[in-house]
């Protein structure tokens, strides 16, 4: 029943441990030592920069021949310089700066994802709390969640008769399953002790929901939300390729149709960065809200 774990970035933990040992001996080093924050920044930034430079050089070498089907990084930059330099360019129709494309995609994701979060937490609570709701709904959820996101698109196009709501629906239906399942697991795992406390205090249904159930299940809910945002961003690009209009997905498809390979590469980099930022944003909200109090 548990969803796949959120990937742990391998370069996150070990540098932190190193910094801790530095922090224990602040004044013993030579006076010319760099300020601590600078050392810490360097420890986080230098390794990925080195890796990146290495990969770029490798790519440059591998694709340097004039007959290569994929352009090397230098050509990507020179060919897409217009796009990089003018992200806010506003033209006619789909001829927009990349910022507007990404913004359009983000808007669709935001709407679909928020609807999925609300509905997912509500359904997850229902399934987690009621044995009968679980028996009735869980098999259906288990089947539906395996349907690939794009398979929903034709059906939603038929239902909504318009591209934009269809894309939003695809996001919704993609993100909702991990949210439902994780919320349900979280609710079902509320320790009996907390329920006893609630009973002794005679908390009413509403108080129990807000003061015990939601905080107790919060770590699980946020795991679902974090998986959900990742899946949403995966699905939006594919969905937009099919529905057209302004959006980073259609931008990529359009670039492919006009053989602008460098534009595709640039767009992929932007998609990756935005996806990463979305994931970090949800992780940050989760940390702030649950305050690292998953257990006593």
């Amino acid at each position: 029943m548990t969803a796949s774990p959120v990937p742990i970035r391998p370069n996150e933990k070990p540098p932190v441990a190193k910094i801790m040992t530095l922090a224990l001996s602040p004044k013993t080093g030579s006076p010319r030592r760099f300020p601590q924050w600078l050392t810490s920044l360097a420890a986080h930034v230098v390794p990925p920069v080195i890796t990146l430079v290495f990969l770029l050089v490798l790519w440059e070498i591998l694709c340097s021949s004039p007959t290569a089907s994929v352009p090397p990084p230098s050509r990507v930059v020179s060919e897409t310089w217009e796009l990089i330099a003018h992200p806010f360019y506003a033209g006619q129709g789909v001829d927009q700066g990349l910022f507007w494309h990404i913004l359009a995609s983000l808007k669709r994701v935001a709407l679909g994802y928020c609807l999925a979060a609300v509905a997912g937490i509500a359904l997850g609570t229902l399934v987690g709390q009621s044995e009968w709701a679980m028996r009735g709904l869980d098999p259906i959820f288990q089947v539906l969640r395996t349907v690939p996101p794009l398979a929903w698109l034709p059906l939603s196009l038929a239902a909504f008769k318009d591209g934009n709501p269809s894309a939003i629906f695809v996001i919704f239906i993609t993100a909702i399953w991990p949210i439902i399942i994780n919320t349900a697991v979280g609710i079902r795992n509320i320790p009996q002790d907390y329920q006893n406390v609630a009973r002794v205090l005679r908390l009413n249904q509403f108080e129990y929901f807000t003061k015990i159930m939601i905080p107790a299940a919060a770590p699980y809910i946020f795991t679902g939300l974090r998986i959900g945002i990742g899946l949403s961003w995966l699905a939006i690009v594919a969905a937009e390729m099919l529905i057209g209009g302004v959006g980073i997905g259609f931008f990529i498809w359009d670039a492919w149709n006009s053989s602008r390979i460098s534009d595709i590469i640039l767009a992929l980099i932007y998609v990756g960065i935005v996806g990463y930022l979305l994931d970090r944003a949800i992780a940050f909200v989760a940390r702030t809200v649950t305050r690292n109090t998953a257990s006593a």
Partner: peptide, 18 residues
């Protein structure tokens, strides 16, 4: 039924961690 007139101190404290 349970109620605050018979408050319980639970074996494993049962404080709400959040």
């Amino acid at each position: 039924t349970p109620g605050p007139d018979r408050a319980v101190v639970f074996q494993n404290h049962s404080l709400l961690p959040w």
